[in-house]
Every structure is written in structure tokens, then in C-alpha cells.
């Protein structure tokens, strides 16, 4: 671990009726770490992100972001503190153009809590967003409604919107899902290059082990709502229980 923890999760538990979605999760993430979360479907990865970002409320436990308790806060409060996320299924404004999507994200990031009565498409903001479209290499889709652009573009747009605010801690929920295998590395390269400039701490959920090995310096493996293993990528991916429950024996 390097530096003081940005996020400290203690004994986090979430029960849906009788189903345990998260049980006694303890994890601590340091500044500027790049952490990859792996786990089979239903292992509790997305639930974990939902809990940290306030979409779901934990049954027990605590989540501290730079020392501040997040449990009980709403997603928008948590977002304003600098904890942002992208989604497994891109959450974009489907009838609005790609540029307008970004403009809204940046407009809200700029305008703080009350404002909002400034013109959205100011010259500076349009220029900034166009620059960002180039960083994410989606400038060709500038004026197309988000509903009709390719899935990969939509995923990148979703991530670009999540990073509109100066995020200190960023969660990416399966950034490469739904993207053709041969394009996955290109997409991750774009995202990681864009994020490297921001000095953000990044936590991403990923199924593709090649991606995990290449981009994650630390890996946290989830299984049935618990953390199975946590540590440097090589160690976790080599762990026998992880191989059994998460990555499958074939990679042994």
C-alpha cells in the first residue's frame, strides 16, 4: 500500500431478504491505486459499487472516504464529494447527442449545488467537451443521439461523463463488457490514458483476466458476497481458491 487510504470499508454487509449480497467486507484503498475487482456473476461486485456510491444502503458496516462516512448519503452527495462511477450498462441520455451528454455532465460539475441557471452551451464548455471527445476518440459521433451510437462509444461516453467531475475515486463497472474482444485493449488504453492525467484512484470491475493482469496493480476477488483474496495481481490470480471459484481451472 502506498500513501493514506482514500477508501476504508469495514465489515460491510448487505442482505436482500434472505440473500446475502455482501458479508463482512473489509477493504482499504490507497491514493492513486489501480484496483481490479474480479468475481463470478452474482459474487457481489456491482452490489459493492452500489453500496459505496449510495445506490443501495448497507445492512451494516461503514464506508469511509478520506475519513468521512458515506453510509446514509445519497448518490448525488457522494458524487459531489468526488466518488464517481460508470455503469455496466451505460447510463447516458439516450435521446440527446453525444456532445450534449458531455455538456450536461460538465455543466453540472461546474455549477455546483445551486446554480444551473447559466447557459449550458457556453463557448468554453463546448470547446472543453470537444477536446474530451477527442481524448476518448469519439469525436466522430459528436452530434449523434447516444441511443444510436455503437456500444463501445456509449461505454466510453459513460466513462467520460463519470469523470466530468474532478473525481478522486472512480469506479468503472465492467468498462469493456459488450465490446468486441479485439477492441478491449484499445478501449482500456484510451480510458487509462485519460485517467492518468487526472491522478485519480481507479477501481474497475472486470471479467477479462488479460485486462486485469495488464491494468490492475492490485486485484480483489469476490465470491458469494465475501472477499476471497486481495493483493498484487500475480498473487491473487495464482491463488488456488480464486482459480477454483473465479477464474476457472483452465487458466492454471
Amino acid at each position: 500500500m502506498t500513501g493514506p487510504p482514500v477508501l476504508e470499508v469495514r465489515r460491510l454487509t448487505k442482505l436482500f431478504d434472505q440473500v446475502v449480497a455482501a458479508r463482512d467486507i473489509d477493504v482499504s484503498i490507497a491514493t492513486e491505486e489501480i484496483v481490479s475487482i474480479i468475481g463470478a456473476n452474482g459474487a457481489g461486485k456491482t452490489t459493492f459499487v452500489n453500496l459505496v456510491t449510495g445506490y443501495a444502503h448497507p445492512s451494516a458496516g461503514s464506508i469511509r472516504f478520506r475519513g468521512q462516512e458515506l453510509v446514509g448519503l445519497r448518490p448525488r452527495d457522494i458524487t459531489r464529494l468526488g466518488v464517481c462511477r460508470s455503469f455496466q450498462v451505460p447510463q447516458v441520455f439516450s435521446t440527446m447527442s453525444v456532445l450534449d451528454n458531455l455538456l450536461i455532465a460538465y455543466g453540472l460539475a461546474d455549477s455546483g449545488r445551486r446554480a444551473g441557471l447559466h447557459p449550458l452551451a457556453s463557448r468554453d464548455r463546448v470547446a472543453a467537451c470537444e477536446g474530451l471527445l477527442r481524448v476518448y476518440r469519439i469525436e466522430a459521433y459528436r452530434d449523434r443521439p447516444a441511443a444510436v451510437v455503437p456500444q463501445g462509444v456509449r461505454k466510453l461516453l459513460d466513462i467520460a461523463m463519470a469523470t466530468a467531475r474532478e473525481a478522486t475515486l472512480l469506479f468503472l463497472d465492467e468498462p469493456t463488457s459488450g465490446i468486441a474482444t479485439e477492441e478491449k485493449f484499445a478501449v482500456m488504453d484510451i480510458v487509462m490514458a485519460a485517467l492518468a492525467q487526472r491522478k485519480a484512484t481507479v477501481v474497475f470491475i472486470e471479467h477479462d483476466i488479460d485486462i486485469v493482469e495488464r491494468y490492475g496493480t492490485r486485484v480483489v476477488a469476490f465470491h458469494e458476497g465475501r472477499i476471497l483474496a486481495d493483493g498484487p495481481a500475480a498473487g491473487v490470480l495464482g491463488d488456488s481458491r480464486v482459480r477454483e471459484h473465479v477464474t476457472g481451472r483452465r487458466r492454471a
Partner: peptide, 12 residues
């Protein structure tokens, strides 16, 4: 109308 969840997650 398009996506309330996203608006919430943009901090508004």
C-alpha cells in the same frame, strides 16, 4: 426523461 439515475450520479 432519458435517465434520472445518471442525473443523480452527476451530482444533481
Amino acid at each position: 426523461r432519458d435517465n434520472e439515475v445518471r442525473v443523480e450520479y452527476l451530482g444533481y
